[in-house]
Design a protein around this nucleic acid. Structure first.
Length: 869
RNA sequence: GGGGGCAUAGCUCAGUUGGUUUAGAGCAUCUGCCUUACAAGCAGAGGGUCCGCGGUUCGAACCCGUGUGCCCCCA
């Protein structure tokens, strides 16, 4: 079979992904094996694959594929989140394109469009995950608005309400006066606006005509003022704290209070407090128990509470009130002022902060066990540094506002009568059943939906119908899940709340380990985002480099919890690595055709095999340890070096037969076995190419995807050491060749001066091949007209057809000597320090003494070499 | 404003309870090679005030304090 010059991923990837799915390797059902469960952090149903998903899902796939090969029964559940805000925005935009306004539609009609959109465009991301090779159990694909799931969410709301953990309360929200809806923070766009700042004076309730001045950019809101606030340290106003002032035009008497919130340098240092129309003022109002005067209707016109300008738009009122204030003599100054103003992403209307009645979850009790689970390491965070962050948040937890003024989502199961009484139950029928007083009354359901996170906090058990079908066989088998892989920015939104829901509804934590990935940034360190346009097209990258290369590139530079500066050059590195694997395969296929079954295994080949076996065992150990600690990127680096350096650069060269010479069959077989082990270790990281080569190397009865790992053997330390020595000698002699400008093609003669020939004799053939030596001899003394190199206690004399650069040699030796002497001095300084000798542990002392002896021996060798020059 | 994190080679990062050959790797750079798997390659080399300052210790990249710079989350 003729193999292509370079590895071509496209066809290979499609072929193996469908094969794996057809074989059912990714589908899991409960069995005798231990479960390894991962639930995907459900991407928005509107989502398309970006670098964050790529990182996140590659990590999950690595964990899941490894578990599969370790004999677990892995189950990785895919699915999507209904993402109320994002999806509703998409649907509204689609309708707008068709010339339909959301406000012209009934709720039912709108939802019809929304479902239509979801069926047509939703979940593209799940297709894209297949491209990446993710071994998800597609038969379990879930959606947070699946019928069962929907009912469960509603049930949880009712349950928490009955337990007294859900209540209604007022809150400041961003209000879009045009759409007459609340906006989430994400939907508010801040723009710089050239406006005016008005300094207004309020008459004090004191004898005489005394005033206090405040600065505001929103003069129309003075009608809702409840106080004036100054800084307690502000000497200008100390005498006024506790006094009263009158709101201009309407002459309402308001107190003057003091709080450190006020910035003394800003404006006049006195702040008007309007709790109903400013976020910060609202908090001040709560703190000092101020009156809340809501002067605005939901369409942005002034309400009766304003007492003037009723029914007029707040923007018009601003112009009018300024004129009226000027007439009344309350305007001190009007200056140009540039400031940030929030606009609605949807309607471009100026957003007004407004008070509104919302639904809340009381978090105190829910948080306690969830905090404990993490602090006692029942749940382990990787890296552990996120524990602090988590603890701080959980100890200062605030109640959770769960209502959203949207239609797409789980509609709040609360009904109101005309008097405004609230009745909570799973359905209208249940309301009539449970609340006899509602009999015959006309009830209407709350218009709002629940926060998306109020459904996703149930994800780890509800994907197994843990709540809709309690104690079923699947949830008992798969829950708690094993590892959650997610981004640190949603530690509070999602991770903390899943732990709470798990404890509350399953009585068990939802997962044992949480792996926090970093944030993917661009080269300049900016977070990747759609608005910046700095997020590369992932599918394009997969087409260009192959999925394995993309997985490699994103993993090689992403230590747990550290941000990842994405640079396409790592994908190139990944592609080159694929190619390296491919070329090694080509070499092996060439040797396969040239085997020699006679005779015994050559001594040097035997040495090479023993050495690589030891190296493989040792590395397997290391990788295992690293993965246990979730150091995935480290593990990949170790494997990369094992394949590229140890296997390709050293081992394959060591066993390589002479030109067109055959290879001993036993050596070939062993080498194929080694290579297959490497592929197996690499498979979780780069599934496609490893499966392909696994089958290219020889006819396999088993796919690599499901091939179980074998336990690794003992590590022969002495053979590792011998290999290390060989490598050192080769590198040193190659360096000497280079420095003396001996052409690669020119053979040299090597003379070794050593006390013990034995170690060199075993590796002599390999050594000769690797440094292009025509002969290797042993000598007791110096060799005339040769290049001398010192290593450890031994000396090497190179005889070549080449003028010897004695001066250059001398420079190198002197450099080495200086280094050794400096080192020796530092060691001796330590050893001559009495306190060190007294206090240091015995083994530390022994190491220092050995360092000293080694350095002395080496200095002697170098000095002798110098003398011979 | 509150909280958290980071700072080691040009870049991205390791560095295990303070002692492991006067700090390691990959990428990039430089030099020499089209050597019979691979130039998307091979061989070799150079490159560091471990952010500044102070302290603890026989000994600090590591522990403590402080300053500076950058980042994230919440309001």
């Amino acid at each position: 079979m003729e193999l292509s010059k370079n590895y071509i991923p496209t066809e290979v990837e499609t072929k193996w992904y469908s094969h794996w799915v057809e074989q059912g390797y990714f589908h899991s059902t409960p069995n005798d094996k231990p479960a390894y469960t991962v639930v995907i952090p459900p991407p928005n149903v509107t989502g398309v694959l970006h670098m964050g998903h790529c990182l996140n899902n590659t990590i999950q796939d690595i964990l899941v594929r490894r578990a599969r090969m370790q004999g677990f029964n892995p189950c990785w559940v895919p699915g999507t989140d209904h993402a109320s805000i994002a999806t509703e925005a998409k649907v509204v935009a689609m309708l707008r394109e068709r010339g339909i306004a959301k406000s012209s539609l009934s709720r039912e009609k709108f939802l019809e469009y929304a479902w239509e959109w979801k069926e047509k465009y939703g979940g593209i991301i799940l297709q894209q995950l297949r491209k990446m090779g993710c071994s998800l159990d597609w038969e379990r694909t879930s959606f947070t608005m699946d019928p069962d799931y929907y009912q469960t969410v509603i049930g949880v709301f009712v349950d928490l309400y009955k337990k007294g953990k859900i209540y209604r309360g007022k809150r400041m929200i961003n209000w879009d006066v045009r759409a007459k809806t609340a906006l989430s923070d994400e939907e508010v766009i801040y723009k710089e606006v050239n406006g005016k700042i008005y300094e207004l004076k309020y008459r004090l309730d004191l004898p005489g005509e005394e005033y206090i001045s405040i600065a505001t950019v929103r003069p129309e809101t003075i009608l809702g003022d409840s106080a004036i606030c100054v800084h307690p340290d502000d000497k200008r106003y100390t005498h006024l704290v506790g006094q009263f002032a009158f709101v201009p035009l309407i002459n309402r008497r308001i107190p003057i209070i003091a709080d450190e919130y006020v910035e003394m340098d800003f404006g006049t240092g006195a702040l008007k407090v309007t709790p109903a129309h400013d976020m910060n003022d609202f908090q001040l109002g709560q703190k000092y128990n101020l009156e809340i005067i809501d002067t605005m209707n939901d369409d942005g016109t002034l309400s009766e509470a304003a007492t003037r300008y009723i029914g007029e738009d707040r923007i018009e009122v601003r112009k009018k009130i300024v004129q009226d204030l000027e007439v009344a003599g309350n305007v001190v100054s009007i200056k140009d002022y540039t400031h940030q103003v929030g606009f609605s992403e949807r309607t471009d209307a100026i957003v007004e902060p407004r008070l509104s009645l919302q639904w809340w979850v009381d978090m105190k009790q829910l948080a306690a066990p969830a905090l404990e689970a993490v602090m006692t390491d029942e749940i382990n965070f990787h890296p552990a540094k996120f524990k602090n962050l988590y603890r701080h948040w959980m100890e200062n937890i605030k109640d959770w506002c769960i209502s959203r003024q949207l239609w797409w989502g789980h509609r709040i199961p609360a009904w109101y009568d005309n008097e405004g009484n609230v009745f909570v139950a799973e359905s209208l029928e249940k309301v009539y059943e449970n609340y006899p007083e509602t009999k015959g009354k006309n009830l209407h359901q709350d218009n709002d939906c629940l926060d998306t996170w109020f459904s996703s906090w149930l994800w780890p058990f509800e994907v197994f119908k843990g709540l809709s079908n309690p104690n079923n066989a699947e949830v008992n088998y798969y829950y708690p899940t094993s590892t959650l892989v997610t981004a640190p920015e949603i530690i509070f939104f999602w991770v903390a709340r899943m732990i709470m829901a798990g404890e509350e509804y399953m009585g068990k934590i939802p997962f044992k380990d949480v792996y926090f990935t970093g944030i993917v940034r661009d080269k300049q360190g900016r977070k990747m985002s759609k608005s910046l346009g700095n997020s590369p097209d992932l599918l394009g990258l997969i087409d260009q480099y192959g999925a394995d290369a993309v997985r490699f590139g994103i993993m090689i530079a992403s230590p747990a919890g550290n941000d990842l500066l994405f640079d396409e050059s790592t994908l190139e590195q990944g592609r080159n690595f694929n190619n390296k694997l491919w070329n090694a395969t080509k070499l092996l296929k060439m040797w396969e055709a040239r085997q020699n079954k006679e005779g015994s295994i050559p001594e040097d080949a035997q040495f090479a095999m023993d050495w690589f076996q030891a190296k493989l065992n040792a590395t397997q150990n290391t990788v295992d340890e690293l993965l246990k600690q979730f150091k995935l990127s480290e593990a990949l680096k170790v494997l990369y070096a094992l394949v590229w350096d140890d296997f390709c650069s050293w081992y394959l060269e060591w066993i390589k037969p002479g030109f067109e010479q055959p290879m001993h069959a036993a050596v070939y077989e062993k080498t194929v076995t080694f290579y297959d082990s490497l592929l197996q270790l690499l498979h979780p990281f780069m599934p496609f190419i490893t499966e392909e080569i696994h089958h290219t190397l020889k006819t396999q009865t088993e796919d690599l995807c499901v091939k179980a790992y074998t336990s690794f053997g003992e590590v022969d330390e002495s053979v590792l050491k011998a290999g290390q020595l060989l490598q050192n000698v080769i590198s040193t002699l190659r360096d000497a060749r280079n420095k003396n400008q001996i052409k690669p093609k020119d053979a040299i003669e090597l003379h070794i001066q050593t006390e013990n020939n034995k170690p060199y004799q075993t590796i002599q053939n390999i050594l000769a091949k690797q440094i292009n030596a025509s002969a290797i001899q042993y000598t007791q003394g110096s060799v005339a007209s040769s290049i001398v190199v010192a290593l450890e206690k031994d000396k090497f004399y190179i005889v070549a057809n080449q003028a010897i650069d004695t001066a250059g040699l001398k420079v190198n030796l002197l450099k080495d000597l200086a280094h050794q002497q400096g080192f020796l001095a530092s060691v001796e300084k330590k050893l001559s320090n009495e306190k060190f000798v007294q206090n240091a542990k015995p083994d530390v002392l022994a190491i220092e003494q050995k360092k000293k002896a080694d350095a002395l021996a080496r200095i002697q060798t170098i000095e002798e070499s110098l003398a011979q020059l």
